[in-house]
Structure formats: structure tokens, C-alpha cells
């Protein structure tokens, strides 16, 4: 079993959550070492789900212990983000693209994303960016598959509504 193919996925997850490149790599490596520590040779399934779960827990633990919330990668000076920076929802799973890459539509989407809860953003990220299926997401976040479906649907609807609102302004 070669775990190298999973490194990038776990790293991306950690980066989206912690919004810090070097921290993300540290946590990714910790994840792999922990995985090796705790799994035995006979765990023959796909290791990806386990790896994600371990990564998620490590990230949560890290935040709890350092008591800092991840700062958004995007420069907070820009006014459109100032709301987000002060929101109690935190910035985990906020978009990480650099400002120069944003188009008009995407700026609206970024704002819309900030109105979602962290947990909903996580589900969106896992589904559409990291391309996991709802079953896997459920296993990672300890939710049933149907709850994941429901929340995804709801989150998408919210985002679409936000976009449509902007269109009318």
C-alpha cells in the first residue's frame, strides 16, 4: 500500500481548514504518522476515509489547543471581506484563491460562502472541491448520508439565492 497518492488530498483539506500552508503540511504529516500508528496491516479498505477522519480530528484538536481561529488567507483589508473577518462563523473553508484571480461572479460567491456556517462550507468543500461522495463525507464528519445530502442541497440553494440577489441589484 502506497500512501503517497493521498498526500495531496489531505494537504488540501488541511489547507482549506487552517488557511496556512506550513501548518497544513505539518498536520498532513502528523495525519500520516498517526494513521500508521493506529492501523494494522489487516485494515484492508481504502485508507482515504481514515486519513480524512484523522486529519479532521487533528485540525480540530489543534484549534482547540492553540485557541486561535484560522485567519483567512484573503487579505482582510478588502472591504468585502471585512464582514467575514469579524463574523463569528470563522474562516475555515473560506475560499483561498488570491484576489487577483477573482471575477465578479466569484466575488459574489465568496460573499455568499461567508454567510454559510463553517460546517456547511466544509461539506461544500469536501463535495465539490475534494470530490468525495456523500457517503464518504458522512463517515468523515460523523453524519448520516441523508443529512449530508440535505445540507448540501440547502447550502447550494442558499448560495444560488445569494447569487440571484446580487444579479438583481
Amino acid at each position: 500500500m502506497n500512501l503517497e497518492e493521498y498526500y495531496d488530498d489531505i494537504y488540501r483539506y488541511c489547507f482549506f481548514r487552517m488557511q496556512d500552508r506550513s501548518l497544513a503540511e505539518d498536520l498532513t504529516q502528523e495525519t500520516f504518522l498517526k494513521f500508521l500508528e493506529t492501523s494494522t496491516y489487516h485494515d484492508r479498505g481504502k485508507p482515504l476515509a481514515f486519513l480524512y477522519t484523522i486529519a479532521r480530528n487533528l485540525c480540530i484538536d489543534h484549534i482547540r489547543h492553540t485557541k486561535t481561529r484560522p485567519e483567512s488567507v484573503i487579505n482582510c483589508d478588502i472591504s468585502i471581506f471585512s464582514d467575514a473577518a469579524h463574523s463569528s462563523e470563522g474562516t475555515a473553508f473560506s475560499p483561498t484563491a488570491s484576489v487577483s484571480e477573482l471575477t465578479d461572479t466569484s466575488i459574489v460567491l465568496v460573499q455568499a460562502l461567508q454567510t454559510l456556517s463553517e460546517s456547511d462550507r466544509e461539506i461544500i468543500c469536501l463535495r465539490y472541491v475534494l470530490e468525495l461522495n456523500p457517503g464518504e463525507i458522512g463517515r468523515i464528519m460523523n453524519l448520516s448520508r441523508f443529512v449530508v445530502y440535505r445540507r448540501l442541497k440547502r447550502a447550494l440553494k442558499l448560495l444560488k439565492n445569494q447569487l440571484r440577489k446580487e444579479d438583481f441589484q
Partner: peptide, 30 residues
């Protein structure tokens, strides 16, 4: 959505997988 979530490339991937920590642990388990 996808375009909003970009990631800088990881820098320490190869060194990690070559490191003795990883190899020792991997040998035990994998």
C-alpha cells in the same frame, strides 16, 4: 467554486516520504 479554492503546492512531500520516521512506521504497518 472549484476555482475559488486554490492550493499552493506542498513543499515537503518528498522529504517526508523519504524520512526515516515515515519509513520506519510504514515498514511496521504497510
Amino acid at each position: 467554486l472549484r476555482s475559488l479554492y486554490t492550493v499552493p503546492a506542498p513543499e515537503r512531500k518528498d522529504t517526508f516520504f523519504q524520512s526515516s520516521d515515515y519509513r520506519a512506521a510504514a515498514r511496521e504497518t504497510l
